[in-house]
Design a protein around this nucleic acid. Structure first.
Lengths: 226, 226
DNA sequence: GCGATGCTTCGGCTATCATCGAACTATGAA
DNA sequence: TTCATAGTTCGATGATAGCCGAAGCATCGC
């Protein structure tokens, strides 16, 4: 059963550490989970046979990453249930509000700001939502090229859609995923508009003052409240 | 942790039994999971404090149901991951293809036919998708009143939207949930168009010959393949 | 009242599984 | 070659938690 894999605290910690989409080595994951390398090795092999993570050998290191965004989606869903149940066990630090405002979901922006961005993009007709998929409009392609210096043609990927709606557990609405979502988040980091919280294992994203302003200029700071 | 609750086989069986949206008594759930009532009682109280199920007392019976469609959604997601991993442990009966074609998700229709129905409703402009929510159009209200004898005004519910998109793990696309989704499925059963598989714990939905024809007439049988 | 049924609580048994120490393999560096 | 680091496998230990028998409350029917 997949759920029992996620059920163990040590494994859950490792998976949470991988939620930001990076690939981490076995010993880094062991450290994150607070267990010895031997124990971690056992857990990692279980997660691998369960299809939740996949390894990549590089020299004498073994990097592990989540097998796909859908895994991250289910993990977010579980976190949402825990949240809803007032399941306030440990781990409820003071960073909770920050986590709701902006955080990494696999490799793209989630939380209040993530939802706001996708809303604004729809309102500005930069994207068009057909069925469950999202499509970039011509105007949208121009927009990301000019405002964010992202070439829409570079976003094609064999195993992943360019745009995708990902359900946000804290906002219960969609934010932007897919290669575009990842590229936008990446751009924000490069432009020094935002940065991942340096605390190990944290998924919080901190915006700089200028980043906050630019973001508001592009995607509406205060007007779009609903 | 919520995942550890779902991780235990006995509890997973009980939750699976509740996925069709019915409320079952404690002893029925114990039987489904193949355990004694004492053990089941322990499990049920854990699931309750975990916020996954909620009880309703009725005479000397205690009926349990899932606390909401979002719980069913996460369970579907987990099932999807298990499916994707080729996680073919036990329980992979011959009813697999039938399960992909039509099954109960919480209380509404899922699977191939469920996705096809929502697609067709969008194409016929019976519903309008704004953001993550779905709305019934005026034409849609006329349609369900005439074709299915469902009064749109009767669908209001304090804790639940009328229409909602629910992600389908086998099709990876949305099907119709919410009170309308439940009402439609209910109507199909009443009209003898479809029936839940009699096998205990099964989520398969079997369509009758006439049901299949009527469904195709309303929601497109072969034309809408993509 | 009495018995029967549905469900829960308590206590003890047992098995599973996470954990770590120690030893082994493999890659990289000197 | 020799040493160091990254990772794995093996074996033993220990704690958690599922499980059931027995007993205790409720509710229903007579």
């Amino acid at each position: 059963m997949v759920a029992s894999l996620v059920g163990d605290p040590a494994r859950a910690n490792m998976l949470t550490a991988l939620m930001d989409g990076r690939a981490l080595t076995a010993s880094e994951l062991a450290h994150q989970a607070g267990i010895t390398p031997q124990t971690a090795s056992s857990h990692l092999s279980k997660l691998e046979t369960g299809g939740l993570i996949e390894p990549e050998k590089q020299g004498r290191h073994r990097y592990y990453r989540l097998t796909g965004p859908d895994v991250a989606g289910v993990l977010e869903g579980l976190a949402g249930l825990a949240e809803r149940a007032g399941h306030t066990r440990v781990r409820t630090g003071p960073k909770e509000p920050a986590l709701r405002r902006a955080r990494i979901c696999y490799d793209h922006l989630a939380g209040d700001l993530g939802v706001q961005m996708l809303d604004s993009m729809r309102k500005q007709k930069l994207v068009r939502q057909t069925k469950q998929a999202i499509e970039l409009t011509g105007e949208g392609k121009r927009f990301i090229a000019e405002a964010l210096q992202i070439d829409a043609d570079m976003l094609a990927h064999p195993r992943r859609p360019v745009c995708k709606a990902c359900l946000d557990w804290s906002e219960r609405r969609h934010h932007l995923a897919g290669t575009l979502g990842a590229a936008v988040m990446n751009r924000f980091t490069e432009l020094n508009w935002a940065a991942r919280d340096p605390a190990p294992g944290s998924r919080v994203v901190n915006f700089t003052r200028t980043g906050e302003k630019r973001f508001a200029a592009l995607f509406g700071g205060s007007e779009a409240h609903s």
